[in-house]
Design a binder for these strands. Structure first.
Length: 437
RNA sequence: GACCCGUUCGUCUAACGGUUAGGACUCCAGAUUUUCAUUCUGGCAAUAGGGGUUCGAUUCCCCUACGGGUUGCCA
């Protein structure tokens, strides 16, 4: 019995983090067991479906690295994979229900007659759950075919899972109470039901339901906020699932190796943007310098900074300084162009240092006299210049940093001097000392 | 209202019925770093409440409270 899981979004809005996590768990489970991950589009609600939403869902999944094996753009043996194209399949199974007398007409619609009994389900996350269908007032026979001839979600969902030979349905907990309905349909259709696993929902930081418009809800917002796909996948996996160890940073392959439904929690988890940013930082730290530069390039370009050769050399210097890629332009601006602002607070500290002006002027002269310009040579010169003036190195370091970068923090000072080159360093020193009274 | 699921530091979580209840994010304090970041050390901080069962309960059972979900000819 091969494992086949599916993600079945309806294209009525962007990809939601809750949906993305459901897709992720389904994906991980399929990959873990050498199975197949199916993407089926539940586009039966013609009034609300949009092409933009379809595209956003596909784009979001690709960005997260959730590649599907069957469905949009991939084909497969159990298509079509859009519900809007499966009308004939539904008609066929509806006839089965009608032949068996399991449906009856009601006001032009057709209702499915539930068996009046306790329905027991063995949920892979929630355990055994029993819903009593003997109480008809709580569980009225459900409409499976509307008076306009279209079929409702419960019916098409079951028919599709049946025909597509889905072995494990991993979905949000909001579907838990739907499951007995689906089990009854499978039974009426004389088909074995898949295994079900209902995963808890994601909530806002305050515990309320996370829905559209809430911060962090749209997967499409993450790339432009400076997150990278593998980090968001990592963070989402940790929301409601635990590897039962103290490791936290994982690649997709590592998640696949460790994932199990037993590790999924029963309680809903709240979304924590701070931790998500931290996970992102950890992933940036694991990138190669060149891949980091590549990843940050669009943000730098958008900020109007040059992204040529100089950029490629400079970007790796700030890899350890940022949590989000959006922070990169501000972190390297002064390395790429001479026009940069000076942080008022840093300037204040320099002004408080009476020796700064003289030290910097001396350093500019000594820099010009250096036989060669290298990181080692500049560092050594800084020490010598300070010593000659009877000052400590620290008294010179900070003003120098502010003079050439305009800020209090940044990459190693020697590295900065190295990439800027002698001319730029000296001219920045001179224009800076000129502004000191 | 009814039905279902759930409840460990502020947040994400770990703990065969026996642990000083562990880790991570955040925050604070140190160390390192000329600075920031990184790294390291330390600190603050939790088993919702009440009953059982047990020699012993975060863990098993019941009640209450709280939270979430479902109660459509939406998906």
């Amino acid at each position: 019995m091969s494992v086949r899981t599916r993600f079945a979004p309806s294209p009525t809005g962007y990809l939601h983090v809750g949906g993305a996590r459901t897709a992720l768990f389904s994906y991980l489970y399929a990959r873990k067991h050498g199975g197949t991950f199916v993407l089926r589009v539940e586009d039966t609600d013609e009034a609300r479906n949009t092409q933009e939403a379809r595209d956003a869902i596909f784009a979001g999944m690709r960005w997260l690295g959730l590649d599907w094996d069957e469905g949009e753009g991939k084909g497969g043996d159990y298509g079509p994979y859009n519900q809007s194209e499966r009308r004939a399949n539904y008609d066929r199974w509806f006839e089965v229900l009608r032949d068996k007398g399991r449906v009856y007409e009601d006001g032009g619609a057709w209702r499915f007659r539930f068996e009046r009994k306790p329905v027991v389900m063995q949920d892979l996350v929630c355990g055994e759950v029993t819903i009593d269908y003997r109480d008809e007032s709580n569980t009225p026979d459900m409409v499976v075919r509307r008076s306009d001839g279209s079929y409702v979600f419960h019916f098409v969902n079951v028919v599709d899972d049946l025909e597509m030979k889905i072995s494990h349905v991993i979905r949000g907990e909001d579907h838990l109470m739907n499951t007995p309905k689906h089990l009854q349909l499978f039974e009426a259709l004389d088909a074995p039901a898949p295994h079900y696993a209902h995963i808890p929902l994601i909530q806002n930081p305050d515990g309320s339901k996370m829905s559209k418009r809430d911060t962090g809800a749209a997967v499409g917002d993450y790339p432009r906020q400076g997150f990278v796909g593998p980090a968001v996948v990592n963070f989402l996996a940790l929301l409601g699932w635990s590897p039962k160890s103290e490791e936290e940073i994982f690649t997709m392959d590592e998640l696949i190796a460790r994932f199990s439904l037993e590790g999924v929690n029963r309680a809903p988890a709240r979304f924590d943007a701070e931790k998500c940013a931290w996970v992102n930082q950890q992933h940036l730290l694991k990138m190669s310098p060149s891949f980091f530069a590549e990843s940050a390039r669009p943000f730098v370009a958008e900020a109007g900074l040059p992204t040529g050769e100089a950029y490629s050399a400079v970007a790796p210097l700030v890899r350890e300084k940022v949590r989000l890629l959006t922070e990169v332009p501000a972190a390297i601006g002064y390395l790429l162009q001479d026009d940069f602002a000076i942080d008022p607070e840093a300037m204040e500290k320099v002004r408080a240092n009476d020796a700064a002006k003289d030290l910097l002027e001396a350093l500019a002269r000594d820099f010009l006299a250096l036989p060669e310009w290298s990181v080692g040579a500049t560092k050594q010169q800084i020490g010598e210049t300070a010593k000659a003036a009877g000052a400590k190195v620290g008294q010179l370091m900070f003003p120098l940093r502010v003079a050439i970068s305009g800020r209090a923090g940044g990459p190693d000072l020697g590295d900065i001097l190295g990439v800027l080159g002698r001319q730029r360093c000296v001219s920045r020193l001179r224009s800076f000392t000129a502004t000191l009274a």
